[in-house]
Amino acid sequence: MTCIKMWDDNWSWTPLGHGVCVSLKHIRNASVICDDFAPPVIDIKFTQNSPAAHQLLVKEHKVRVEKTASRPLDRTLFVLNIPPYCTEDVLNRLFVQFGPIESVELKDKPSNPEPAEPKLSKHFTPKQKQGFSVGYIVYTKPSGVTAAKAHPQNVPLIVSTEEHPVKTGLQKWIHQYSRSLVPPDVLQQAVDSFMNDYDQRKEEEAERKKKEAEEQEEDEEGWVKVTKGAKGAKARPHSEAADKKALEKEGKKTKRKELVNFYSWQHRQSQREHIAELRKKFEEDKQKIALLRAQRKFRPY
């Protein structure tokens, strides 16, 4: 998967209409000035009484390269530094105060929305990492984004409230454990549906291959239709390993044909090699000894 860089290394908070850039120097200055502006920060606390708060950083979603339907640029709020106990539901609850929300997406780190793959049942998706994450909140209207950005820092968002307690620690683990006891029939269903799907895909592919093969065959008049063909569909399935093996075989063959110690120069050569080998070993050993001596490894006690 190619990862497209979405953000500049330093997140530039360019205010609109601030200064007119005339010369290169000015532009450089401008970018320095930009850093003056603190990113919009929203404090987030676990409970009302928590002694300390984490800082959420919010900003409208901006990408230079790619636009996707799932994250429309004007309506998506990008949130950084979301603590591990904030699930998508919690985030939804906290940010709905700025406007109605279309979707919430949590990610380990800023990344592209993933292409839709065959939907896996939740029993087979690998466990998500529970660290600090980034979020993409899509509002139904662009006003939600501005409202969120305008939220004052000193009014913290509260994760766990009386009405909506968030389970952490022991309670959460007990909950997790009981969730992990999936009844076998539910699991079986998930397996069956996936395998049916898989078989279908396989069949389709086989069908397609068959068709291609048919097209490659001669017709009654002996003509073959020449096509570009699908990528990767070669007559002979080849792999790196097979290539290597073939090369090796070739090498062995030539080696077998060689005569050893047949000519006198060969004999001389092998003797020379032997002495060189001994010398090399000697030099290596000398080096090792020098090293050990430096480390005082010869003091017996």
Partner: peptide, 15 residues
């Protein structure tokens, strides 16, 4: 650290 989106986890901003 200089402010970067990738290294923001559990940190706070200081200007």
């Amino acid at each position: 650290l200089r402010f970067k989106t990738g290294t923001m986890a559990a940190r706070r901003v200081e200007v």
